[in-house]
Amino acid sequence: MLKIAVLVSGGGSNLQSIIDDINSGALNCTIEYVISDRIGAYGIERAKKAGIKTIELDRKELKSDLSNTILGLVKGKVDLIVLAGYLSIISGDILKEFKNRIINIHPSLIPSFCGQGMYGIKVHEAVLEYGCKIAGCTVHLVDEGTDTGAIIIQKVVEVKEDDSSEVLQKRVLEQEHKALPEAISYFADEKITIEGRQIKIKK
């Protein structure tokens, strides 16, 4: 069975969607660790309620050692690292040790509205300011860049004329909660083939 570590920075609603799908039997994996880069993140509380081992790290204290610290915790213990609302940049040896085995959920249709400084509500504000007719989310592999890894899955929502950034964010988040467990299932069920930027999913 696929063993995963989930990394969070905030509320952990995407983590909850993974926990719910595991509990319902829709997702065939186990969460070995939930790791936060911020002390007091609510995602840690969600994990504790589900009986999952939790680790709280302080990104301000660890700074450039954060990724190496995480690598030390998960190396040899998990098969896949899942970034679920994790805001720190992954860097260093962990990218080599877990090449093609780190995934991230981003609240836009990459390559639009992504990269440095594009996270949370800022993404949805930018989508509305640009006048986009559709928005959505992307699950992608994590590489040396920021939101530059190969795309695994994307889900689309309509942008409505009376949308506020908060309303749009909520609609996109509903799709995130479907997309992230679905992407994990591709790894758990061995349905994913990675060839450079081309990712193929067995039907």
Score class of each variant (00 low, 15 high):
Met1Ala: 11
Ile4Leu: 15
Ala5Gln: 06
Val6Leu: 10
Gly10Trp: 09
Gly11Cys: 08
Ser13Arg: 11
Leu15Ile: 04
Leu15Thr: 02
Gln16Arg: 10
Gln16Gly: 10
Ser17Asn: 08
Ile22Ala: 08
Asn23Thr: 09
Ser24Tyr: 11
Gly25Phe: 01
Gly25Arg: 03
Gly25Val: 02
Gly25Ala: 04
Ala26Glu: 14
Leu27Arg: 00
Ile31Ser: 01
Tyr33Cys: 05
Ser36Asn: 04
Arg38Met: 12
Ala41Phe: 02
Gly43Pro: 00
Gly43Ala: 03
Ile44Ser: 06
Glu45Gly: 06
Arg46Ile: 05
Ala47Trp: 04
Lys49Val: 11
Ala50Arg: 02
Gly51Gln: 09
Gly51Tyr: 13
Thr54Lys: 00
Glu56Met: 02
Leu57Trp: 01
Leu57Ala: 06
Asp58His: 09
Arg59Phe: 14
Arg59Asp: 10
Lys60Val: 05
Lys63Phe: 06
Asp65Arg: 15
Asp65Thr: 14
Leu66Gln: 00
Ser67Ile: 06
Asn68Pro: 02
Asn68Arg: 14
Leu71Trp: 02
Gly72His: 04
Leu73Trp: 00
Val74Ala: 05
Lys75Trp: 05
Gly76Val: 01
Val78Cys: 08
Asp79Tyr: 04
Val82Thr: 10
Val82Ala: 09
Ala84Thr: 05
Gly85Tyr: 04
Tyr86Thr: 06
Ile90Trp: 09
Ile90Cys: 08
Leu95Gly: 00
Ile102Ser: 06
Asn104Pro: 10
His106Gln: 09
Pro107Trp: 01
Pro107Phe: 02
Pro111Lys: 12
Ser112Ile: 03
Cys114His: 09
Gly117Arg: 07
Met118Gly: 11
Tyr119Met: 09
Gly120Arg: 07
Ile121Gln: 12
Lys122Phe: 14
His124Arg: 08
Val127Gln: 04
Tyr130Ala: 13
Gly131Lys: 07
Cys132Asp: 10
Lys133Arg: 15
Cys137Val: 04
Val139Gln: 01
Val139Gly: 02
Val142Leu: 14
Thr148Arg: 03
Ile152Leu: 15
Ile153Tyr: 08
Gln154Trp: 14
Val157Arg: 14
Val159Asp: 13
Val159Ser: 12
Asp162Thr: 13
Ser165Ile: 11
Gln169His: 13
Val172Phe: 08
Leu173Gly: 05
Gln175His: 13
Ala179Ser: 04
Leu180Met: 11
Leu180Trp: 03
Ala183His: 07
Ile184Leu: 11
Ser185Glu: 11
Phe187Val: 11
Ala188Leu: 06
Ala188Trp: 01
Ala188Tyr: 02
Ala188Cys: 09
Glu190His: 11
Lys191Thr: 08
Ile192Val: 09
Ile194Ser: 08
Ile194Asp: 07
Arg197Tyr: 08
Gln198Glu: 13
Ile199Asp: 07
